[in-house]
């Protein structure tokens, strides 16, 4: 393949000799071949085997989850998606409530994290003085590396007590919005119990936002730092202010990265287990009241129930896990599609 291509290019590049020399045989192209020695063949075999091994491990996880989940899925059929209870022993189980809870937690997390991560990314690339930049980058990276259990402890012991004021305020003034209403709460009375606001989806979402924020910020910073200097300086040369430059050059350039980064964070938020398990008090009903006590997520369900389940219960948990994996997979692939498709994404990799 390569050899024939080489021949073709060499033929077109051949010098045309003057008439008198035409009779001499034309110079023939050198045949190129690639044949590895013993070392190269061994190298190919080794790397190929490792690729195959990784493929089979990863494939095994996926296939195994699917196979194990089949009995539970076969038993419930379509109602697996619509039932909100979780009682596999009685054959009554479905992921409607837990999946909704997962999505709500992730939605709160992204809604809280997105403005902060975008602002921080822009601050690092555009506003911060040069000496501060590398420190900030290191701190944000560090934030991404802090284990989730630490954020969970922070949320349970520090944030929860301080966030109730905001919950109450949101409920009082925006309680007419369906997702901010709280059953059994009286926001006008200052003496009303605070316990209706604790262990809620809202608190868990803010804690997950702490983990999502640095991930989004890293992707966005990467993208904003690749804004072509020519366009940036062009905007300044036309008299634009710094925000004008950001609005006209940086944001349109980084659009793919912003969307992709936000979705990558969403993927992480959907799969978070331990912080959610620490904070939320599990319940199994379809409720979109994010401020209200109680909520659930697929991963918290698995972590809470794996030990008390028999074979069929585990199959049901596998099915729930499979559904979660399908959602995160779709989210992550959409994110990489957005990033790769954007102008800035050709070289970046996230």
């Amino acid at each position: 393949m390569t050899a024939t291509q080489m021949t073709a290019t060499q033929m077109t590049a051949t010098t045309v000799l003057p008439q008198s020399q035409r009779d001499v045989a034309p110079p023939s192209a050198r045949t190129l071949y690639q044949r590895g020695g013993r070392g190269d063949r061994f190298f190919d075999a080794l790397t190929g085997t490792s690729g195959l091994l990784v493929l089979s491990i990863m494939g095994a996880v996926g296939v195994f989850l699917a196979v194990q989940a089949t009995p539970a899925l076969r038993k419930t059929g379509f109602s697996f998606l619509t039932t909100s209870e979780w009682q596999p022993d009685r054959g009554q189980f479905g992921i409607a409530a837990v999946l909704l809870g997962t999505v709500l937690i992730a939605a709160v997390a992204v809604a809280v994290a997105l403005p902060i991560s975008m602002g921080t990314a822009l601050f690092i690339t555009e506003v911060a003085p040069r000496w501060l930049r590398s420190t900030l980058v290191a701190l944000i990276d560090l934030m991404a590396a802090v284990p989730s259990v630490v954020y969970g402890l922070w949320g349970l012991f520090l944030l929860q007590g301080n966030i109730i004021g905001i919950s109450r305020w949101l409920n009082r003034w925006f309680g007419w919005l369906p997702f901010f209403s709280v059953e059994g709460a009286d926001p006008t009375s200052p003496l009303s119990s605070a316990s209706v606001y604790t262990a809620s989806t809202f608190v868990a979402g803010i804690v997950v936002a702490m983990m999502v924020m640095p991930i989004q910020c890293v992707v966005m910073r990467e993208v904003f730092s690749q804004v072509p200097p020519g366009e940036r300086e062009g905007a300044y040369a036309l008299g634009s202010t710094r925000w004008g430059m950001i609005r006209v050059v940086a944001l349109p350039f980084g659009r793919g990265g912003i969307i992709g980064g936000a979705m990558l964070g969403l993927g992480r938020a959907l799969g978070e287990t331990i912080a959610v398990l620490l904070i939320i008090s599990p319940r199994f009903d379809l409720s979109i009241h994010v401020l209200e006590a109680g909520g659930n997520s697929v991963s918290a369900l698995i972590a809470g129930r794996y030990n008390e389940s028999n074979g069929f219960g585990l199959s049901a948990l596998m099915a729930a896990g499979l559904a979660l994996f399908a959602v995160t997979l779709v989210v992550n692939f959409t994110a990489s599609w957005f990033i790769a498709r954007s102008r800035s994404g050709a070289s970046s990799d996230a």
Binding site: V54, V61, G271, E272, T273
Partner: peptide, 13 residues
């Protein structure tokens, strides 16, 4: 496949 597996929630592993 490796890209897909980075999306695997750790609880599933």
């Amino acid at each position: 496949v490796v890209t897909a597996m980075t999306a695997l929630p750790s609880i599933l592993a």
